[in-house]
Simulated scan of single mutants.
Amino acid sequence: MTVAATEPRVVAARRRVPRGSARRHIIAAATELFARRGYEATSVQEIVAAAEVTKGALYHWFGSKSELLTSIYRELLAEQTARLRDIAEGPGPVQERLRAAALDVVAHTADHVDELTVWARSAHLLDDEQAEATRRERRAYHDLFRDLVREGQDAGVVRTDVSATVITHMFLSALGNTHTWFRPDGPLTFAEVGEQLVALFVGGLRP
């Protein structure tokens, strides 16, 4: 009786990202897919495939796709808030700190324009609990910026005929809505647009 020789079965192992870097890869993949395809049109399976991780790894770090979206924004907001606090509590005349704070939020936004654009377009899809948590953190950032404006008003270097709250919302809203009309193939970069917004902001503060 002839026994057919059999070759050992070789199963190619699917490539996986190194242990410890899965979370970073998930966030990067999700950001790229959300920006290119939209949050609603992107599936969890597409995210894990692009990130080269298992679905279990994604759910280890994030309870859902909406939690992933929220985490991307909240981490950027926490970073932005820490930077603003360092500037607000730092040395120098208040008018210089105000200008530095405005330039810093522009620079940070330009560095993370994809993530922030995804958030601006998709935040309304979150459930009430997630939305309220991010609103609280966003209000804390606004309050910190507003207090710096008020310090300028108290020092006599910022106009007082407009409330600090209106000044703050005017600048941050203008910057936050830039994604609705900015075009990467236009004559200005996002950073240049932001710098022009800062010029208008600083110029409009003078008493």
Score class of each variant (00 low, 15 high):
Glu7Tyr: 08
Arg9Ala: 06
Val10Met: 13
Val10Pro: 00
Val11Asn: 07
Val11Ile: 14
Arg14Cys: 02
Pro18Glu: 01
Arg19Leu: 05
Arg19Glu: 00
Arg19Met: 04
Ser21Phe: 01
Arg24Cys: 00
Arg24Asp: 00
Arg24Ser: 00
Thr31Tyr: 00
Glu32Tyr: 01
Glu32Met: 04
Ala35Lys: 07
Arg37Gln: 14
Thr42Glu: 03
Ser43Arg: 12
Val44Gln: 09
Gln45Ala: 13
Glu46Gln: 11
Glu46Gly: 02
Ile47Gly: 04
Val48Thr: 15
Ala51Glu: 01
Lys55Thr: 15
Gly56Ser: 15
Gly56Glu: 02
Gly56Trp: 01
Ala57Asn: 10
Trp61Leu: 02
Ser64Pro: 05
Ser64Gln: 03
Ser66Asp: 14
Glu67Asn: 06
Leu68Ala: 06
Leu69Glu: 01
Ile72Gln: 09
Leu76Cys: 00
Ala78Glu: 15
Glu79Cys: 08
Thr81Val: 04
Thr81Ile: 03
Leu84Arg: 11
Leu84Phe: 07
Arg85Ile: 13
Ile87Trp: 01
Ala88Thr: 10
Glu89Tyr: 08
Glu89Gly: 15
Gly92Phe: 13
Pro93Lys: 09
Pro93Tyr: 03
Leu98Ala: 03
Arg99Ser: 08
Arg99Trp: 07
Ala101Val: 06
Ala102Gln: 08
Asp104Gln: 13
Asp104Phe: 06
Val105Arg: 13
Val105Glu: 14
His108Phe: 13
Asp114His: 10
Asp114Val: 02
Leu116Cys: 01
Asp128Gln: 12
Glu129Met: 09
Gln130Trp: 00
Arg136Asn: 10
Arg136His: 11
Arg136Leu: 10
Glu137Cys: 01
Arg139Ala: 09
Ala140Gln: 09
Asp143His: 06
Phe145Ser: 11
Phe145His: 09
Asp147Cys: 12
Val149Glu: 01
Arg150Phe: 06
Gly152Thr: 07
Gly152Phe: 00
Asp154Tyr: 09
Gly156Val: 02
Arg159Asp: 06
Arg159Cys: 04
Ser163Ala: 12
Ala164Pro: 08
Ala164Ile: 06
Thr165Gln: 12
Val166Met: 14
Ile167Tyr: 02
Thr168Ala: 14
Phe171Glu: 05
Asn177Met: 13
Asn177Gly: 11
Phe182Asn: 03
Pro184Trp: 05
Pro187Arg: 08
Phe190Cys: 01
Val193Gly: 00
Gly194Cys: 06
Glu195His: 08
Leu197Asn: 05
Leu197Met: 13
Val198Pro: 04
Ala199Thr: 11
Gly203Asp: 14
Gly203Asn: 05
Gly204Glu: 03
Leu205Gln: 05
